[in-house]
């Protein structure tokens, strides 16, 4: 069998899987980029915001609804976690003019705290409801359209909807333009009477919320537990950095490049060298980011299209 036919055989299911993962990863990365733009902080607690989304789907499912509806609860709970992190921890530190390094460590500490709470929640769900709350997987509850799993469609739709809503928010509303103003220059925004703290708080709610939505989709794609956010946090940052930390809309670009590189490329490699290579899949996003950043240091959105 030639290399061309090998690639063709694996490409159908793999492409759908890559599309799904890329969409979910893009949703996760958008929040990281948004927060970096507004607060200039790499947010490690994003890992737990995502995991909160996973357990939102679980809770909704236990209440008798379809776990896809967990996206709504995930948005609210992830958003609230973002609010608490900013208001209770980051804002007081910012007022004391703490360095970005301190703020970053604070997000990491908050993530560890949330990780502990999510473990408690998982144990409690396991004991109370007799479910495998550390191995949540909803593939069997998913629907399919012509053989395409529902999560591929829903995650892509969620991503497109999020990008459109963010575009409308940031460009068509006073609140959004004020948020963009804060992203660019907080001192100048203050002189216009914009309450910068309130704007940043809002951005943390939105970013946490989007992470929660992504998390609620994850159990349809892969098996999840309290650890799942931490497992993918490096990949989220890869997608965000690769897309360009200065551009919110770069995150989906980064997400798709990293997602396809990881899922499709590892599948192609496995067909050539054997399935053992899949163990090394997590290396691919990091390698893809390293190579791409050597070529485009400011991220994919910095690429100018040449005309003529």
């Amino acid at each position: 069998m030639g290399w061309v036919s090998k690639v063709e055989i694996i490409s159908l299911g793999t492409l759908i899987s890559a599309l799904t993962w890329s969409s979910i990863l893009s949703l996760m990365a958008i929040g990281i980029t948004l927060l970096y733009r507004t607060t200039k902080v790499p947010n490690f607690a994003h890992a737990s915001f995502v995991t909160t989304g996973v357990y939102s789907a679980t809770i909704v499912s236990l209440m008798g609804f379809h776990p896809y509806l967990g996206m709504f609860l995930g948005f609210i709970l992830g958003g609230l976690e973002g609010l608490v992190l900013f208001y209770a921890i980051l804002e007081p530190l910012r007022r004391r003019r703490s360095s970005i390094f301190i703020l970053m460590i604070a997000t990491l500490s908050y993530d560890i705290l949330l990780y502990g709470l999510l473990n408690v929640l998982a144990d409690d769900l396991q004991t109370t409801y007799k479910i495998l709350a550390r191995m949540i997987y909803y593939s069997r509850l998913d629907f399919s359209i012509g053989g395409v799993p529902g999560v591929a469609v829903i995650s892509l739709l969620a991503l497109i909807t999020t990008v459109i809503l963010l575009y409308i928010l940031l460009n068509r509303t006073t609140l959004g333009v004020a948020l963009r103003a804060c992203m660019e220059n907080t001192a100048l925004a203050q002189t216009l009477g914009i309450n910068v703290s309130l704007m940043l708080l809002f951005s943390w709610f939105i970013a946490g919320g989007i992470a929660g939505v992504a998390g609620a989709l994850l159990p349809f794609y892969t098996m999840c537990g309290p650890y799942i956010g931490m497992l993918y946090i490096a990949e989220m940052f890869c997608a965000s950095i690769l897309g360009g930390l200065d551009q919110i809309y770069g995150a989906p670009l980064g997400g798709f490049l990293i997602g396809f590189a990881k899922v499709a490329l590892i599948s192609v490699l496995a067909s050539f060298v054997g399935p053992w290579i899949t163990e090394y899949a997590p290396i691919i996003p990091l390698a893809a980011m390293a190579v791409a950043l050597v070529l485009v240091p400011k991220g994919l959105v910095a690429i100018k299209i040449r005309r003529g």
Binding site: V177, R180, A181, E184, A187, L188, T191, L192, I194
Partner: peptide
Amino acid sequence: AYVLQMINIFSELSVEENLRISASYA
């Protein structure tokens, strides 16, 4: 109203957006 010395406009916003955002918060 305070016009800062150096970075005193939002360079990523359009001229009209700069003016509108200032007016709406006033």
